[in-house]
Design a protein around this nucleic acid. Structure first.
Lengths: 233, 233
DNA sequence: CGCCGAGTTGACGAGTTTCAAGCATAGTGG
DNA sequence: CCACTATGCTTGAAACTCGTCAACTCGGCG
């Protein structure tokens, strides 16, 4: 469990550049608010302006809502991630906790204004925004052109990269999100996701332990199932 | 037709902040290269590093390639847009001209380094990157959770916003992309796209003139077909 | 005016969703 | 500590949307 101060220190050390002066730290501290979210709770924020969120500890999902109660998970975030929660437009967006979370929130416009005098902060923001864009683009390809099996394989590989613990040639995962979250992230139904897990298990590419435990046994084969381009070699 | 210098001036006036000193202009000029692309040609660039591209004039598509010759259009760009062409990772990316184009290209890392001393340039980059991310997220929702009719309606509305000419309650569009490009952008086939156009035409929501001309007759109804959230009112 | 490629339309089939039932898992209380 | 229960996950069958294949039409260019 972190205190509010710990959380901010965490933010400073991860996002603000090294050797940030104490007055800069104070500046950003006054802009931010610390929020603690229990699992399955969502962040409340003014819908008329975007919010910058730093995830001090935990895991979250960014959800877009369309008409008819349909939901699409746009991204998952883990400890140390920085994300922008968009203002509501043609669709609305919410940030929901997958597990108990500590986060720092900043009004986007104010943060940006404060950051203008600190290039290194801007650079950090830009870099993280670029990473988010890159992930979003990968997701676009996945949703637009891939089959259910390819999507689930891609998902497992991408999670392995972000929260996997390598053990020899295997990679162990402890997924904080439910099958529903995975389905909403991949544009599938929970039933289809479940069927693909079963398929991969039957083919000996993964093993599952309980609801959240997954072990990737054959990363190379998963890569092929994911429809990744073969490296010309 | 623009000369190389015109193109750069265009870049300066649109991306660099007003009142950029002449030495700054020179700095960025030396980093960039001017490229002229005929329709259907693609930009060649070193695949090991990302490239920053400013579209001085024309229209382009950013395409991601998966295995098996499948293509996904990640984004369309029009005159004045700034975009980042990612380095090849699990998938490869190309930028292709939809019509004759003038563009300026910059090695991303070098540009960023040069920009570090010019906060306003960084701010511009960040702002445009954020817009791209926002568009990409909307696309994610579209591809993940919408039917063919909703996707095509969303597409038409988004194009109307970017390149539409309002005429009374109608909006006229001159689409620079083919049905194949639209299909590749929406994760559908050309046949399905064609069928949705026919449906919307039969319902009196759009009119088509030739291959590229589309007139949106009932924007409100298209909004409903697009699955946008009704504004609570 | 005629050609060629882009776009449209139709019939059929594959893959995913939907609906329904049964099972496992993790948390709860005896 | 173990049975109980609620919830999430898995499995199966039927329905439906969209993709595939094929034939045909239209529009723009020589």
């Amino acid at each position: 469990m972190h205190t509010c101060t710990d959380a901010f220190d965490c933010f400073v050390s991860r996002v603000l550049p090294k050797r940030t002066g104490p007055e800069t730290v104070r500046l950003f501290r006054t802009l931010g608010s610390h929020v603690h979210l229990k699992a399955d709770r969502q962040l409340h924020y003014p819908d008329d302006e975007p919010t910058l969120v730093f995830l001090c500890d935990g895991a979250t999902k960014l959800v877009a809502h369309a008409s008819d109660h349909r939901e699409q998970v746009l991204a998952f975030h883990f400890t140390g991630d920085l994300l922008t929660l968009p203002a509501h437009g043609a669709h609305s967006y919410t940030l929901e906790a997958l597990v108990e979370c500590d986060l720092m929130t900043f009004p986007y416009a104010q943060f940006l204004q404060a950051a203008e005098k600190h290039q290194q902060v801007l650079t950090q923001l830009l870099e993280r925004s670029t990473v988010s864009l890159q992930r979003s683009r990968e997701k676009t390809l996945t949703l637009g052109r891939k089959s259910a099996l390819e999507r689930v394989s891609s998902f497992l590989l991408s999670m392995a990269e972000r929260i996997g613990r390598g053990e020899g040639s295997e990679v162990k995962l402890d997924l904080p999100m439910s099958r529903r979250d995975i389905a909403d992230s991949l544009g599938l139904t929970i039933e289809t996701v479940s069927r693909q897990f079963t398929l991969l298990r039957d083919q000996g590419l993964i093993r599952t332990q309980g609801r959240s435990g997954v072990t990737l046994l054959r990363v190379d084969e998963l890569d092929r199932r994911a429809g990744h381009l073969r490296v010309a070699a």
